[in-house]
Amino acid sequence: MSLKWEGIMPAVTTKFTDGDTLDLKMFETNIKAQLNAGVHGIVLGGTLGEASTLLDEEKSTLTKTTVNMVKGQVPVLINVAEQSTKAAIAAAQKAETDGATGLMLLPPMRYKSGDRETVEYFKAVANSTSLPIMIYNNPVDYKIEVTLDMFEELLKCDNIEAVKESTRDITNVTRIKNRFGDRLKIMTGVDTIALESLLMGADGWVAGLVCAFPAETVAIYELQKAGKIKEAIEIYRWFMPLLELDINPKLVQNIKLAEVYTGIGTENVRAPRLPLHGNERQHVISVIEAALKARPTLPNYKNLSTLV
């Protein structure tokens, strides 16, 4: 299927059993909830997916399982985050074999590559696969920024089509649009500035708290797209304390705990991560419980023509 870079694409969590194996039953429960809410794509094996702890065969299993589940309803992307160009090429080619629709591609891991090295890394991976690619630009967490000048060179590769824009600078949305128009699609990647980024022209949102609250996330996107900004802002303001759980070193544990409260996940994480405890846990629980008490009644966001 062709890949439309738009809408809500959950960066889904990876579900584990108590024995630290893939929990595909709970994973399916969560994916079904995402699809029922109307998401526009699924992103596997990202930061929230605990990518750095997954074995290659587990990534392959997740990809194949998701492709079989969604049956072409939405695109399925797998994250590529490797330490060497050789390994990244192998991962991209395996993803294509496994049936992925596209790739989310990070800069080299561990080694802080220079601009030229980063560009050559991305180009080598792009040239090794026919899959469409979204470059993940997150200098805050990964210490490598993909500048507009670097994108100028990268866009010579036809299958580099989008950026997951996570610089935390909303003005970058305008800079990208001014420089590249629709040639480089923008998927905002920071939950706490997502609506602002969408209103400034981002095409979609690779979201985190959507893992626990899929309907509310999709509703915000659909409402703002339909020009119902006031309604979107009202939900977004309710959502903000939860969204702030995403910009935290314990985002995986935070969001998995929220998934428990909404019935579509477990707290199981893979070591060295451990479930939240003590005051940290109580704080997150208080945020989740307060949000659930005030949870808004959503409009019929899947059929906005019926709204008054």
Rank of each mutant, 00 (worst) to 15 (best):
D20Y: 11
A258H: 05
I176L: 13
Q83W: 08
T97H: 12
V125Y: 05
K64L: 10
E244C: 13
E58M: 06
R168A: 10
K59M: 14
A291I: 00
T13C: 14
F151R: 00
R295M: 06
V12E: 06
M200W: 12
I133L: 04
T14Y: 02
I78E: 13
V12Y: 07
V190D: 02
G189R: 00
V163K: 03
K123E: 12
A87C: 09
K185R: 15
K59E: 12
N137G: 04
M104L: 15
T61P: 09
A290N: 11
V74Q: 00
L199I: 08
V70T: 09
N30A: 11
T171D: 14
A202M: 03
E234N: 14
L148Q: 07
L223P: 04
A87I: 12
V269M: 04
M200R: 13
K230Y: 07
D23Q: 05
D56M: 10
T14N: 02
V125H: 05
T101F: 09
Q282P: 04
N248H: 15
N300G: 02
M104K: 06
A291Q: 01
K4A: 15
P272L: 07
Q282T: 07
V39I: 15
E234P: 03
D18L: 09
P107C: 10
S113L: 07
F239T: 00
A87D: 14
A33Y: 10
V260N: 05
P132K: 01
Q224K: 06
T13R: 00
S286V: 04
L251C: 13
D203V: 08
P132V: 06
A215H: 10
V252S: 02
G49T: 03
N36A: 15
A271E: 12
A258K: 01
P108F: 09
T188W: 09
L35Y: 07
L251Y: 13
D191R: 01
E6L: 12
D18V: 07
P10E: 07
T17S: 04
G38F: 11
N68T: 10
F16I: 00
T192N: 11
E58I: 04
F122K: 02
A202F: 02
G204P: 01
M187G: 04
G19T: 12
K177R: 15
L251I: 12
L103N: 04
E153F: 07
Q93N: 11
R273L: 15
A91E: 09
